[in-house]
Design a protein around this nucleic acid. Sequence first.
DNA 1: TAAAGTATGAGGTCATTA
DNA 2: TAATGACCTCATACTTTA
Length: 591
Amino acid sequence: MGSNASGDDFDFDWDTEDELEISEIPFCGSNLPNPTCGDVSCNGEGSSSAHSSNSKLIQDFVGMGFAEKLVVKAIEENGEGSAESKILETLLTYSVLENSTEAENQCIESDHSSSDYLEGFLSDFSDVESWSVDEDKENADSLSEKEKNLRSLEKMGYSADLVKEAMNRCPDAPLAELTDFIFAAQLARADGAHLPAEIKPKVNYTCSGNGELKKRRLYAELYERKKHRGMLEEDGEMIRLPKPMVGFGLPTDDYSKIVRERTLPEQAMGPPFFYYENVALTPKGVWDTISRFLYDIPPEFVDSKYFCAAARKRGYIHNLPIHNRFPLLPYLPLTIHEAFPLTKRWWPSWDTRTNLNCLQTAIGSAKLQDRIRKAVENNDGEPPAHVQKYVLDECKKWNLLWVGRNKVAPLEPDEFELLLGFPRNHTRGGGISRTDRYKSLGNSFQVNTVAFHLSTLKPLYPDGINVLSLFSGIGGAEVALHRLGIPLKNVVSVEISEVNRNIVRCWWEQTNQKGNLIDFDDVQMLDANKLESLMGSIGGFDLVVGGSPCNNLAGSNRVSRDGLEGKESSLFYDYFRILDAVKSITHRGYV
DNA sequence: TAAAGTATGAGGTCATTA
DNA sequence: TAATGACCTCATACTTTA
């Protein structure tokens, strides 16, 4: 939904004070023996000359709390000069495997393959000083479970106040869960985030601008820890895409067959309501992670080809009511010929397309159009099969329309607007280039689809709604709510792109909105203090809506499809952070 | 200098076939 | 059941042009 984030905003300085703040805490993501844990001063010391070229790298990882020997081993395993992310992955694997063994000791889970591996692995590092499982076993008979946990946590180097807090909040929890609690507390202290209630610590809000990369990795680590211990319901069962991709049903469905109710986890229930969107076809496991963070709500996958003439496969996670949805009227045309009748005259019979593929941010080049014209022209009558296949493949890939004899062309920006449910010229003028129009529209919601989902809010907010719109882009959610007839009282819109902010501002003024539009440029600057202040002044948020960047998830990205931990897509964790903060402030009450 | 033009596959799902 | 192939995908980086 939102525009791609500016790269300048995500240059991480590994030596910032913020990083040191994190470095100074024991890296609870790993319970491995770690003599350097919490000791920043020894970073890098003792590195062998053989690894001098990696000393900075080693220093960084040691600073995160990994034992130096493990870091060296991870670098060796991945090879000299290997990617930092690969090394981190290996280190996290070590820690997860270790957790598995610990979990076995706690009678939580059994994973023989992992523990076998770990046993061999740990034997390689038997000289590392730390708390000992064997030592604990010796005392096992004479101590209560609680006392054992307390001793273990103390030996792991956690501060007394955190241990006390964890023991008070989770008195009967096994050791693994207690370390999770402390881990979350440290994370939140570093980040200012509110975490799911079962591990939510009391925290002081702090604004963080730097070190986001490591924090996101820590979030990912927390997820991995839970997953490995079998705390995830879907563990082993990846979320799969439904077929047909119609979510809880379409406006045209027989209403008696539509699912009318669903059970939400108590923690997920509004207020505030929230609505999250991203591409459906992500690398494996991404939606499992997103769902886990968003209170275990399964995604609703919908292809917008059921709402307009172009496909748009997207996943939505929300806590909205799902019965008595209603669509925007009039319906949009569902076929190419209905949407673009003039193309019918030139459409060859062997082009069997009735729908367009997903509208993206780039269009087919003029040279390609020319190549296609020549390929089709050089034939008497119908082109041979191999030419038809070539032309059809390119037409599908680039969403080309037949606009003249043997002539194909990409969609115009205003045709994007039509298909996506925006007012004509929504993105036109005001200084935006044609290229940027394509980019903004290609990153947007399909308004009719989103409006159908949001429609259940209308009876709940007859006097208007306060909306926090994250990664607003060109305002798909705002347009959807407006077209539904839900008055917009206050909209706090966060969008990194200036041209997109201008588009929303222009739309806001053109449509004579009675409410207030407050915009920010960077979600990372929206900390809990600011949220609390905003909520106090406008009376809280009724809806938190947004789709975080898909750059690193989308299949079209041939360069940096790095998954949810990618540079831009990891901003999902900011969506979660902000949503959780809003929930927390709402429940606690604001001034 | 901004805008437009251009070339650049992999990863995943699903249906079909051996 | 495994192998194979068809199909689709909210993009990025570099070059050229105005």
